[in-house]
Computed example of a mutant assay.
Amino acid sequence: MLSDPLPYAVESLRFPFPALATLAGRLPLGGGREVALAALLVARLSQGVASGEALPPADRATRATAAKVWLASLALPAATRVPFARCVEATTGTTLQVAGALRALVAAAGAHLDGPSVQELEKLARQLAGT
């Protein structure tokens, strides 16, 4: 008899940003939803810089270039455009650069996000900063 009842079961996956995804799905079309989608994009790119999941620099640069094109098509509030662009650019750098850019983004776009979404971004910034 086997000690593990499901020895061939696949581990269940856990999506790292459920609050951001939920917020983006819940908001009506327009500015708020686009801020939430842009924040989700930035969070996913930033996660690719994390030490345990780091992507090669060339892949990060390719992703950042494509993300900038996509961000330019969104109707983001003027006060959030630059922080989002800086976050995307920072993903080609170090974890500390990304953490700083994420913190600046939360300061600029936090009013457009709900509490759990802000907490996910802040948690990611702390993880990247190593604190």
Rank of each mutant, 00 (worst) to 15 (best):
1 M>T: 08
4 D>K: 07
6 L>K: 07
7 P>W: 01
13 L>W: 12
13 L>F: 11
14 R>V: 15
16 P>Q: 09
17 F>G: 05
17 F>Q: 08
18 P>R: 05
22 T>W: 05
23 L>N: 00
23 L>H: 03
26 R>F: 10
27 L>D: 04
28 P>T: 10
28 P>Q: 06
29 L>Y: 09
32 G>T: 11
37 L>Y: 00
37 L>A: 03
38 A>E: 04
38 A>K: 00
38 A>R: 01
39 A>D: 02
40 L>A: 12
41 L>Q: 04
42 V>W: 00
42 V>A: 12
43 A>Y: 09
44 R>I: 03
44 R>F: 05
46 S>T: 06
47 Q>K: 06
47 Q>L: 15
52 G>T: 12
55 L>D: 02
55 L>S: 05
55 L>E: 04
55 L>C: 04
57 P>S: 01
59 D>F: 06
62 T>V: 03
64 A>W: 02
66 A>S: 09
66 A>E: 10
66 A>C: 01
69 V>N: 00
69 V>P: 00
71 L>S: 00
72 A>S: 15
74 L>H: 01
74 L>M: 14
75 A>Q: 15
76 L>S: 06
76 L>M: 12
78 A>Q: 15
79 A>F: 04
80 T>A: 13
86 R>V: 07
88 V>A: 02
89 E>V: 12
91 T>M: 08
93 G>K: 02
93 G>A: 07
95 T>C: 10
95 T>V: 12
95 T>F: 00
97 Q>T: 10
99 A>W: 01
100 G>A: 11
101 A>N: 07
104 A>R: 12
107 A>Q: 15
108 A>L: 10
110 G>V: 12
114 D>W: 05
115 G>H: 11
116 P>K: 04
118 V>F: 03
121 L>D: 00
127 Q>I: 14
127 Q>A: 14
128 L>V: 14
128 L>S: 05
129 A>I: 10
130 G>V: 14
